[in-house]
Design a protein around this nucleic acid. Structure first.
Length: 616
RNA sequence: GCCCUCGUAGCUCAGUGGAUAGAGCACCGGACUUCUAAUCCGAUGGUCGCAGGUUCGAAUCCUGCCGGGGGCACCA
């Protein structure tokens, strides 16, 4: 597996720092960063000079001399070169022979207060590209093999439409699943369906009393399924609120359902099955990996709730207050200044969702063996998760070596900056939203490519439209609210998935047109033009980007990387002809860069859950 | 009241304690017998909410304000 150039440089600079300063530099971070002034810059000399009370420029000069003796000595001609003492230079030269470096550095320059500007050899850039090209992982090693993540996302409610809030959880969760799996983790998807609660008494009672509410035909689509369930929900609620006798029967129905009554359970199962049919349709359209087997709803934990509550009480984690079994926290108080509890068991004897979440934590740790549990949920639930995690820690359900993270995200707003709703003020159905996105894309594809058969246009528009919706969600930072603007996301300009898909398609167009017999391979001996150098450098940063994304669960960093890659490629595309390259070697070398760019775009988009066709 | 979160160009957003804060959109001016113009190049546009502090160095870290959004006892 390929080490990134930034890592190679970090090793080299660390070795040089150690050669000059000895143990004082042992654990120091050289702070290698991309630079406007060279290929990379090392910022780590300054803090180190501070630590040893040295002159930073002098130290930088000595380190430069170790890294590239000839280049380092020459580079400091300007500025305070006279301060670079003779003794320092001698030390450095003596040390240089004992410091093995990678040989990737062509030139080192001391700049500003003590930065090291590092320029790489063309051969090093070529070697990196050669190592990544053709490797399905592009040279990025998996770092988390043998570890297990449980990720809880999507979480739609039975008998209810999915809406834009579910979209964010589903899309972000799906991208994280792909990224974590790429990193070698075992990822267990958990779709924590809202499949339990008092509203089912009302629904079941209505269904029992009105069997005709079901659809006439047994064979029907997911959309038809959610359609009748929505009607059922609406009608049942109307009756519940207007007819007190029905409301009484509905409340009794909750009790019989929880008591295991077979007729009630059958109706409940029917609604769950119908809803799942709809969810699977939506997931298929979204091209996300959630499947039926991932559905582990709230009801799954019912058998454990009483035991969890009793256990919490026994351990002294939970106490009775105002008739409810509660967990209290030092620093969590309500508006009146009184502490606010996490309610495990309500005063009517029922269990709240806190009990379910605690049971789920225990199950995920003990049975699923997770060492990382992620909850991709709306940021409004931040306090709830804080309390659940803290309570689980106290109870020992969440050991210190298991990480639990609320991967929170902001609300979806309309273009007016208010919560995203229809003109009538209702929540937007997810299906409708996706239809709109695809319709937008159809219009654009037709405009660009009017000759395309209707079926192909439709297929292309699906890839473009769905990708656009997902990318719009993934390309802004997760924690912020984001503005849902279809025109913008399907506009095909700027930082959109379509721009990236188009760049990828153009790449394949070039590759298809290469003269027969052209070898796509790197020629290490060639000098590189600025655009080629920039492209090669950016390609090499893919692995570090993915690592950063996984570290903080921030898919938008990958989106930014890919957009910058496409822009860097555009510059290359304008300035470095491939098919009309001056020599065969240059053409082959450029073709290699083109292919690696295409592979990087494709893999990067795939990790976000977006497909990149070879042609658009 | 307390807690969380956000505040960067007219708009939508990036920005690992590093040098001159960047994209896109919009607007203006250019480039299509081309490797896909679904593109590219250039110009305009900033008291990084405010004030302190830490630091050689702060949009970034700390504190306090101001403003938006969210949350705070039996719904999930």
């Amino acid at each position: 597996m390929a080490k990134a150039l930034s890592e190679i440089l970090a090793d080299d600079v660390r070795a040089a720092l150690t050669a000059v300063l000895g143990d004082a530099a042992r654990g120091a971070d050289p702070l290698i960063r991309p630079s406007d002034h060279a290929d990379f810059q090392a910022n780590g000399v300054l803090p180190l000079a501070k630590a040893v009370k040295g002159n930073p420029r002098e130290l930088a000069t000595r380190v430069a001399a170790v890294l590239a003796p000839a280049a380092g000595a020459a580079a400091d001609a300007a500025g305070s070169a006279e301060a670079g003492t003779a003794a320092g230079a001698e030390d450095a030269e003596a040390a240089a022979e004992t410091v093995p470096t990678s040989g990737v550095i062509a030139a080192v320059e001391v700049a500003g207060p003590g930065f090291l500007n590092l320029t790489l050899t063309a051969a090093a850039l070529a070697a990196q590209a050669a190592e990544r090209l053709g490797d399905p992982r592009l040279g990025v090693p998996p770092t988390a093999v043998g570890r297990t993540t449980v990720i809880d996302y999507s979480q739609p409610n039975i008998a209810k439409e999915m809406h834009v809030g579910h979209l964010r959880s589903t899309v972000i969760g799906d991208a994280l699943v792909r990224l974590l799996e790429f990193d070698g983790r075992t990822v267990l998807r958990q779709n924590h369906l809202g499949d339990w609660g008092t509203q089912f008494g009302m629904l079941i009672q209505y269904l029992v009393e009105h069997p005709e509410a079901r659809p006439a035909r047994a064979e029907h689509s997911g959309e038809a399924a959610i359609s009748w369930l929505t009607t059922l929900y609406r009608d049942a609620r109307v009756l519940f609120e207007s007819d007190t006798e029905f409301a009484d029967r509905a409340r009794k129905r909750v009790v019989t359902l929880q008591g295991g009554d077979e007729e009630s359970l059958a109706a409940w199962r029917e609604m769950v099955a119908e809803s799942k049919r709809y969810f699977e349709d939506v997931y298929a359209r979204l091209d996300v990996r959630l499947v039926d087997a991932d559905a582990v709803g709230e009801s799954f934990y019912n058998p454990y709730l009483a035991e969890v509550a009793a256990d919490l009480e026994k351990r002294g984690v939970a106490v009775w207050s105002e008739g409810a079994l509660c967990v209290f926290f030092e620093d969590i108080k309500g508006p009146d200044g009184d502490p606010v509890p996490l309610i495990v068991r309500k005063s009517d004897g029922g269990f709240g969702y806190a009990a379910t979440d605690l049971a789920a934590v225990r199950y995920r740790v003990n049975t699923l063996k997770a060492d990382q549990i992620l909850y991709v949920v709306d940021s409004r639930q931040a306090l709830h998760f804080r309390m659940v995690f803290e309570a689980a820690r106290r109870a020992g359900y969440l050991p210190a070596d298991v990480e639990a993270v609320h991967v929170q995200f902001g609300s979806v707003l309309g273009t007016d900056g208010k919560p995203f709703k229809t003109r009538a003020g209702k929540t937007v159905r997810l299906i409708e939203l996706l239809d709109n996105a695809v319709d937008h894309a159809v219009a654009t594809v037709e405009e660009k490519n009017p000759g395309l058969p209707a079926a192909d246009t439709r297929a292309e528009a699906k890839v473009v439209g769905i990708g656009a919706v997902k990318y719009a969600d993934l390309s802004t930072s997760r924690t912020k609210d984001y503005i849902f603007d279809l025109d913008r996301m399907v506009s095909l300009h700027g930082n959109t998935s379509v721009y990236l898909q188009y760049a990828h398609a153009r790449i394949h167009s070039i590759l298809r047109k290469l003269p027969a017999g052209t070898e796509v391979r790197v020629h290490g001996e060639l000098a590189l033009e600025p655009a080629e150098r920039k492209l090669a450098l950016h390609l090499d940063d893919f692995g570090a980007t993915v690592a950063a994304v996984i570290e903080n669960f921030e898919p938008h960093r990958l989106a930014s990387y890919l957009y910058a890659l496409a822009q860097t490629f555009s510059d290359f595309y304008e300035n470095c002809p491939v098919l009309k390259a001056p020599t065969d070697a240059v053409r082959e070398n450029r073709a290699a860069l083109v292919e690696l760019t295409g592979e990087t775009l494709k893999l990067g988009l795939a990790l976000l859950g977006i497909s990149a066709p070879d042609q658009l």
